[in-house]
Simulated assay, not measured.
Amino acid sequence: MDRLKDKVALITGAAGGQGRAMAELFMQEGARAVISGDVIEAAGAEASAVEFVRLDVTKDDQWKAVIDKIVAEHGKIDILINNAAICLYEPILETTNEIYDRVLDVDLKSIFFGMREVLPHMIARKQGSIINVSSIWGLAGVPSSYAYQAAKGAILNISKNVAATHGEDGVRCNSLHPGYILSPMNEHQAPDINAALIAGTVLKRAGKPIETAYAALFLASDEASYVTGTSLVVDGGYLAP
Rank of each mutant, 00 (worst) to 15 (best):
E73I: 09
M185Q: 13
M1A: 14
N132T: 02
E24S: 12
V227A: 05
K204H: 05
L108S: 02
A15C: 14
L25H: 10
K64P: 08
H121C: 13
N157P: 10
F26Y: 08
A23R: 03
R205M: 11
A42K: 09
A196N: 07
G37H: 03
I198G: 02
G114A: 04
P120M: 06
A49N: 14
D105M: 08
V57N: 00
G114T: 07
R205F: 10
E24D: 15
T201R: 05
K69N: 14
G141N: 00
D105F: 03
Y180T: 06
Y180W: 15
G13P: 07
V53F: 02
D192P: 06
L197S: 09
H177I: 06
E187N: 07
C173P: 07
T12H: 09
L197F: 11
A33F: 06
L139P: 07
D2S: 13
Y146F: 15
Y226N: 02
G207V: 05
A215L: 07
S175L: 05
S110Q: 04
A84V: 04
I131T: 06
L176C: 00
S110N: 01
G19P: 02
I130R: 14
I11N: 05
M115R: 03
I86M: 09
P191D: 05
I99C: 11
G170T: 05
A213R: 02
P184H: 00
S36K: 00
T212I: 15
L80G: 00
H74K: 14
K204V: 06
T201G: 04
A31E: 08
K109E: 04
A224V: 04
L219S: 08
H188S: 15
Y148G: 02
A49G: 14
G153R: 12
A65C: 01
T96D: 00
I11K: 10
